[in-house]
Design a protein around this nucleic acid. Structure first.
Lengths: 254, 254
DNA sequence: ACCTCGATTTGATCCAGATCAAAGACGCCA
DNA sequence: TGGCGTCTTTGATCTGGATCAAATCGAGGT
């Protein structure tokens, strides 16, 4: 690409947050135009990364939070023996790295599941900005708190659900997240493997595969490889026992 | 009690944070003396509550965070059919209610497991104070982040561990938390029932009971009802596969 | 068009821990 | 001091999902 195209891209980027369709899910939520501009001024926009690219790894010094602009990411840990434990899947508008604030170092891998664009937010600058923009501070706390709630729901799911309920919950959750982002809630591609889904839900990959087959047989889904169509959303929802969960400061911590 | 004793108690309370042995675990960490005083000025100190007292319940409007001063608390949800799912056990210095910041309402029950004293922090005032005390803001973010990490570890534990590993992890975690608080790390009382432990770890109460028996038979523990002595801490630790876990934004959220 | 390798599906078997059942043990209160 | 209700322990059985094993499918490379 020439200098010219570069300039255009930088220019397109300058107004990114204000125009970004993700703004209501993301950090700028609740900020007014001038404050959004201040926020934008600290954002680093790197070029998109390819499937398989590792964004950060355990032990990496924590410098920035990342927001996914397009694409998707999985976070996971790895045991000494080399097998992965998937912690989460992340869609556009979601923050990566929140757990690293705590001790100034990342504790897991983050890897792109497909071509992915990220907004990088240097944390020191973000924190500094928060002291002068109360609604940014509030939004930071809200996002952290949302993360805590989401994890508590996950814990509840793992503690009290069958394989069927877990997969149903996973699909309903994904569906809702896609909907909020303007994608079809009933027709989407899974960027991750059966293995990854199994690891995330605490199931063997064979179990995940069998469940997809069963859901299809029951007319709930139409599955073709990574492409999923939800045919009977209600039935899928009825599989979830209503986990309202909550949660704060469970063991191991402080 | 007479007015006089009330005055004394209020007086003793005034310097609480500065003298409190929990300060390094708690919100005041990293603040200087004048800032601690400002923080103290917003703290409400209610009288101690009895075992079984419910601090907040799902649907309650979120107004305050609570820090445990003495005693212990469990957080849990309840299904329509009435059974409890324990989310966490909380010791002195730990914050309750972090998950409620998100949507301004509590999502779970918090109940005292024994006589418990709490410091109540009205959240609007806390947030306001944070904008003028950067290190308080930082500490808030750190504590939220720590919660996220702790929950991620829990998820990892539930996904990848046997019953034995779960109980070992629970005991090691408790032990470390007691140690930091100046209690014996090898000789303590469990304020919660076998049922509660099972619910927290995703195990049947019978399994928890059998494991205590087995650990005792192997000379790892000495158990008498709720009193636990750790006889072979090393062996207990070796039962944990090193879950470094991590993470951020798993499903269901945003 | 063919080959290769990883991902997925499907089948058969096994087992950790759930569930069902009953018998202690303890604390509490009258 | 005894009776009652709750919590805990221990035993017997059952089962959802893991694990082992193999066949099949697809995508990318040559």
């Amino acid at each position: 690409m020439t200098d010219k195209s570069k300039v255009v891209s930088i220019d397109g980027i300058k107004v990114a947050c204000a125009n970004c369709s993700l703004a209501t899910l993301c950090l700028p939520y609740g900020l007014d135009a001038p404050d959004i501009e201040r926020l934008e001024s600290i954002i680093k926009r790197n070029k998109p990364i390819q499937r398989g690219h590792v964004i950060f790894a355990p032990g990496d010094r924590f410098r920035s939070l990342y927001v996914i602009k397009t694409g998707s990411v999985k976070t996971y840990t790895q045991t000494a023996s080399g097998d992965e434990h998937v912690i989460g899947f992340h869609l556009p508008g979601e923050l990566l790295g929140l757990d690293a604030i705590q001790d100034d170092a990342h504790g897991c891998f983050a890897k792109a599941l497909e071509t992915t664009a990220l907004c990088e937010l240097p944390f020191d600058k973000l924190e500094q900005l928060s002291t002068s923009i109360p609604s940014l501070q509030h939004q930071m706390l809200r996002l952290l708190s949302k993360e805590v709630s989401a994890e508590a729901n996950m814990i509840s799911l793992l503690n009290n659900s069958t394989a069927e309920e877990r997969l149903a919950s996973f699909l309903v959750g994904l569906s809702e997240r896609f909907r909020r982002r303007g994608f079809s809630p009933t027709d989407f591609f899974l960027a991750m493997s059966r293995q990854d889904i199994g690891s995330y839900l605490g199931l063997a990959l064979e179990t995940v595969s069998r469940l997809f087959t069963r859901f299809q047989e029951h007319g709930i889904l139409e599955v073709d490889r990574k492409h999923v169509k939800i045919r009977d959303f209600d039935r899928l929802k009825h599989m979830l026992k209503h986990h309202t969960a909550c949660h704060s400061t469970l063991g191991q911590s402080s």
